[in-house]
Amino acid sequence: MKDTIIREVYSVLEDRRDNPIDSYTSKLMSNDKKRAEDKILEKIGEEAAEVIIASKNDENLVEESADLIFHTLLLLVYKNINIEDLFSEFEKRRK
């Protein structure tokens, strides 16, 4: 189901963190602690800028937004944040 895709992506990212393989995400997270976080934050900054440009140009907004969300999830996984904490925060804000 489509509503489970965020959980699936999160689970894959956790697995790549815990069982590194030759992949983009494993490589980002396997750098030394300071460098890994810096690289992930750099990607989030790049992707945020690309979302802004895509919106202003009325093109590729969905794709660029997916990249930004992906890298934000990657940061949360890297920082050992439980996905349920994210969903709980959304629920709190909905009330």
Rank of each mutant, 00 (worst) to 15 (best):
F87W: 12
D18G: 10
E64N: 11
N80W: 00
E63P: 08
Y78F: 14
I44M: 11
L76Y: 06
T4L: 11
K56F: 06
A48L: 15
E89C: 03
R93D: 01
N57D: 08
N60Y: 09
H71L: 13
L28D: 06
I83F: 08
N80I: 00
R16Q: 15
T72S: 15
E50D: 13
N57F: 02
D15N: 12
E42V: 02
L13V: 05
A48Q: 06
N57C: 08
I81S: 05
E46Q: 13
I83L: 15
E46G: 08
F90Q: 02
L73W: 03
K95P: 00
T25R: 00
K2S: 09
E59L: 08
A49I: 02
M29H: 01
Y78Q: 05
K39W: 03
A49N: 09
I81K: 07
I52S: 08
K92F: 04
E91F: 00
L75D: 00
K56V: 11
E37N: 13
V12F: 03
A48P: 03
A48G: 04
R94K: 14
G45R: 03
I6N: 08
Y78I: 02
A66F: 04
R16M: 15
K56L: 08
K34E: 14
D38H: 10
R16C: 14
K95V: 07
S88Q: 12
K2I: 04
L74T: 14
L68S: 06
S55A: 09
V9C: 01
V9R: 10
A66Y: 04
M1T: 10
L86D: 00
E63I: 04
N80Y: 01
D22L: 02
K2R: 11
